[in-house]
Amino acid sequence: MSDSQPDTSDKRYAISDKSAALSRLRYYLPTLVVAVAVLLAWELIVRVFDIKQFLIPKPTSILEAFADQQSILFDKAFNTLRSAFGGFALGSAGGILMALVTARWVMLRQAMMPFAIAANSVPIIAFSPILFNWFGPSNPFSWMAIVAVIVFFPVMINMVRGLVEVDASALEMMRSYAASDFKILFALRIPNALPFLFSALRVATVLSMIGAVVADFFGVERATIGKYITQESASFRFENTWAAILLVSVIGIAFYLVVAVAERSVMPWHVSVRKAE
């Protein structure tokens, strides 16, 4: 083995690479098995018991519908996605800003937080017609506003917690250095808040997809996934509805994963990330 040094090290690298891939496969294998088993069972049950297409279509019919409707679906998904991403960006930026302001002034926080928590428990989607009324039934901002309002509160509440729930001795230490509030914010409070923020953002990705589709239901714009879902369901083309749901889910998962990857790169030091290294 020691005859050709560079060669062996290369091989060793390849082996460790392969074993890493193997262990990753072993990690995901049970999930894969479950997914395949569920899809097979679904397909079989629908075929064997001859369940009507409009109740539950077969997975293969859903895939067929997806392939068939692909270009229409992608077209409509564009508008829905724009609402989701735009609202996500607006809502999280607003939530983070509001958190920074309320965390700084104790009085303001004590005055505001009960309302934020109360607002968070209100089904904000019910306000959709009001928001369309405010910003206009065909203004893309109306869709984004609905998503933004849904995203805003969990992001703000979590960010405030992260900024405020700081280890007491870490704070005493900063005080012992006579550190300014500004320095304490940037060196201690914000890094401390990142794990809180990212868990809120991960939830917000899912919320923003839900919000965007529901906003579609209320808006006048026809080229959206939400409208497509209502239309196709009304015409009993449920395999198309399912295909739309499939697309929205896949996009939602992708969105979630993007935030999860961002989380890893922003805070590689955090417990939740360390273990996976």
Partner: peptide, 30 residues
């Protein structure tokens, strides 16, 4: 205010998001 003393707490109170060297540099940064 004159930074006349250093304080060591019962818990090491190191910041997880900083390397060991960056932790030592924290007061110097401030």
């Amino acid at each position: 205010q004159d930074r006349d003393y250093g304080f060591v707490f019962q818990a090491a109170t190191l910041y997880d998001w900083r390397s060991v060297s960056q932790n030592v540099q924290l007061p110097l940064e401030i």
